[in-house]
Write a protein that binds this DNA or RNA. Sequence first.
DNA 1: TTCAAGTATGAATCCCTTT
DNA 2: CAAAGGGATTCATACTTGA
Lengths: 288, 288
Amino acid sequence: MEFLNKFILGDCEKVLEGLPDESVDLIFTSPPYADQRKSIYGGIKPDKYVEWFLPKAKQFKRVLKPGGSFILNIKERVVNGERHTYVIDLILKMRQQGWLWTEEYVWHKKNSYPGKWPNRFRDNWERLIQFNKQKKFKMFQETVMVPVGDWAKNRLANLSETDKIRDESKVGSGFGKNVSNWKNRKMVYPTNVLHMATECANRKHSAVFPVTLPAWFIKLFTEQGDVVLDPFVGSGTTAVAAIELGRNYIGIDINAEYIEISRKRTSQIQIRLPNVAESQTEFETILN
Amino acid sequence: MEFLNKFILGDCEKVLEGLPDESVDLIFTSPPYADQRKSIYGGIKPDKYVEWFLPKAKQFKRVLKPGGSFILNIKERVVNGERHTYVIDLILKMRQQGWLWTEEYVWHKKNSYPGKWPNRFRDNWERLIQFNKQKKFKMFQETVMVPVGDWAKNRLANLSETDKIRDESKVGSGFGKNVSNWKNRKMVYPTNVLHMATECANRKHSAVFPVTLPAWFIKLFTEQGDVVLDPFVGSGTTAVAAIELGRNYIGIDINAEYIEISRKRTSQIQIRLPNVAESQTEFETILN
DNA sequence: TTCAAGTATGAATCCCTTT
DNA sequence: CAAAGGGATTCATACTTGA
């Protein structure tokens, strides 16, 4: 496939026309929010947002595999003192398009932009809306398990004498190993609330979300060698996550500068990372 | 006003007809979610939810003062593998009714219901949707300021892996019992993400949300002596918060057993609390 | 009295069986 | 064939118990 592991300059609606049906396992994207980033994207008016987005969503649906997922990172702007309705309008319209509104994850941003307003507090969360084409879809819940809650810490902090003895007698090795084994076993499934700090790096290209955010969903909804699409790839964060996890990426953006940044950024990563060699062989196998 | 500081048995839609226009400063409520709590409320079908709720919302709008706020605690159920749209439908319809959709707070529940499903994780958050009648409304931001603790410096500086994923423990709403410990700390404004556990104790009456939740909004949107209405008062949690903060309450519920529980619960509080005396004089002043 | 360990229980959801 | 019902799954919290 000629699109694989490339950044393509252009309007994703047009570009995707060249992509075959059902060729993508996961779409993860953070489109320009209405009227935001005017200088770069031209600024879509909130009232026009849904009609601007819908034809693109139609293409997304076409290129997504039946068991694939679409994760949309979005948040409604405040317009005239009110939250604008373009996000919920979009959900309703996309359902009419045939999408299933499977779930809504919340990204709790721990460090939000500072500021003070008379009628609201700082906005500290964003939506991560999951759409699917069918009720059954690929999901690998074990890949995102998290260590168990506080009681595990307590347990580790005060290991009782009997615990120590038991461990010694059983295995004979240092109890550190046992503890780690036990720790590994004690993983629990996460919830639909994600806790991640925003990345306050690079002022040039506003890093919209941290690499850990697409990485979490890529692990959850794809396997090694799968294809991850970001039709508004911006500075390439989704692609970075995909590469690091041994997935193929397709990055599209209408802005040439962003495409350039993404290319530079990912090339650096491919050099830097130790596991690139093995990842690349995987890529080559798939590409051939 | 004959309704003040009472629990009234009946359908709030009918009961409120007896309340004058613009007589309430804050409406805080958690209505029965669609198809939930069948045994108590009869269970409203998800598809009928909006049409069931709208005439009640109309009464709410009538009795609310121009500068008052309406906080609606709600969450969409999963129906046939999909999030149902009754919540976002309701937002759109209420806007047609003349409400402004000012803001949506997120309540991050620290202890969610356990369970495992092939297509989703545990639901760990609920919506707290703020509606207003006009752009300008009463808001006292200083009353809910949060102390900046060591967590701000240390935790945010070097986030551990678990920290990134798991919830922080102390950020919260700042309404904890040991706030006095933080007196010397610097205070900052909170965000629109609230951190509270559900109340899993108290076997007699299952309080769905903790007292701290209505308390937070009561402090934020009302002053001493103001009137707080909960049209689905359940076990009286909103009223408890109102009493503790020296506000007047109006509690309505269609279920006689709940009304009884609420009456008992609040009478106990009035006896127990040390600051009741002063609160009551205030009430009397207002009542006369 | 304090602290650690044990235990009960929630605004749940899926899936399969029964009516 | 739609609607209703029951079993299995699972974890943070706070109350209870015991040393």
